Computed example of a mutant assay.
Amino acid sequence: MSEAPWYDAAPPHAVRVIASLREYRTAEQAMRRRTRESMRMGEADLKALRFLLKAEAEGRNATPVELGAHLNIKSSSVTAMLDRLTASGHITRHPHPKDRRSLTIRATPGADEEVRDTLSAMHRRLLAVAAELDPAKSETVSAFLAQLTAIAEQGDRASQPAD
Rank of each mutant, 00 (worst) to 15 (best):
D134K: 02
A80W: 11
D83M: 09
A30C: 07
R100F: 04
P161I: 06
G155N: 07
R33N: 12
K54W: 11
R116L: 08
A136S: 10
M31P: 01
A4P: 00
T140W: 02
R116A: 05
D8R: 05
D83I: 05
P135I: 07
A111H: 00
K74L: 05
A80L: 09
D8G: 02
L145G: 03
S75E: 15
L133G: 01
D117M: 04
G59Y: 04
G42R: 07
A10Y: 11
A121K: 00
N61M: 11
L52M: 01
D45Q: 11
T149E: 14
M41E: 14
A130L: 15
A9D: 10
T92W: 02
E114I: 00
F144I: 05
L52H: 05
A48Y: 03
L53T: 01
R50E: 14
A130I: 02
L67M: 10
H96S: 06
S120G: 08
A48D: 01
R50V: 06
V129K: 06
A4Q: 13
V141S: 06
L67A: 01
A152I: 12
T108Y: 00
L21H: 09
R125T: 08
Y7T: 07
H96A: 04
E23T: 13
K54E: 15
S76M: 07
R125A: 15
S20F: 05
G59T: 13
A136F: 06
R106W: 15
S159M: 15
K47E: 12
I73K: 05
Q154D: 13
A27S: 14
E28C: 11
D156C: 04
L71W: 11
D83G: 09
L82T: 07
A27Q: 14
R60W: 09
A152H: 13
V115I: 12
A19M: 06
H123M: 04
H123W: 01
G59S: 10
T35I: 14
P97D: 07
S88Y: 01
A48V: 06
A162V: 05
E56Q: 15
A130Q: 03
K137Y: 04
H90E: 12
R100D: 11
R36N: 15
H70S: 14
L21D: 11
R40V: 08
H94I: 02
I73P: 08
A14P: 00
H90T: 01
Q160Y: 10
K74H: 13
S138T: 09
E139M: 07
S120D: 09
R116G: 01
S120A: 09
D83P: 01
H70M: 08
T79N: 07
P5K: 08
R16L: 11
H123T: 11
P11F: 06
E28I: 08
D112C: 01
L119D: 01
L49R: 06
P12C: 01
H70T: 01
L126A: 07
E113V: 03
A57I: 06
A150R: 14
A57G: 13
W6L: 12
P12L: 10
M81R: 13
E58A: 10
A121V: 09
H94A: 08
